[in-house]
């Protein structure tokens, strides 16, 4: 397995932007690494604003969906906001099937997601 980080984290003003460096979010070890990297950003923050951009992602598993739910809980526990964006239609279907589109705010693209933090 590559040692390269599976996520790239940057900031747009106060927003923590997470982008995936792999097209697949499948491996348990990989998912654990992603969870740890995002948690490290959220845990010290008060009212974190987290944007997860799925532009690069072609495949994900139910474990990856579970990881997103865990991250959401951490963000909400800190009175923060979480947005997801740029999910490809075939992956969006998995969010719809599992009804996670009701739990998470999913925006079509990054500008729309950034604007939605003002809601």
């Amino acid at each position: 397995m590559s040692n390269a980080s599976p996520v790239a984290i940057s900031h747009i003003e106060k927003i923590i932007l997470v982008e995936f460096t792999n097209t697949r979010i499948l491996d348990e070890a990989n998912i654990a690494q992603i969870r740890a990297a995002i948690s490290a950003q959220i845990e010290p923050a008060d009212m974190p604003q987290l944007l997860i951009d799925f532009s690069n992602v072609d495949h994900l598993s139910s474990s990856a969906l579970g990881m997103v739910i865990d991250i959401r809980k951490k963000v909400l526990d800190r009175n923060g906001k979480i947005r997801l964006c740029s999910i490809k239609p075939h992956l969006l279907e998995a969010f719809v099937i599992t009804r996670l589109d009701k739990l998470l705010k999913i925006l079509p693209d990054r500008p729309a997601a950034i604007a939605s933090f003002k809601d």
């Binding site: 139910s62 099937i97 599992t98 009804r99 996670l100 739990l103």
Partner: peptide, 21 residues
């Protein structure tokens, strides 16, 4: 059933649901 309101945040059942879908 992971799609029930009270189970949406629980980890189990989502993989089976995806398989069946």
């Amino acid at each position: 059933d992971p799609t029930r309101e009270e189970n949406l945040e629980r980890p189990s059942g989502r993989g089976l649901l995806l398989i069946e879908s």
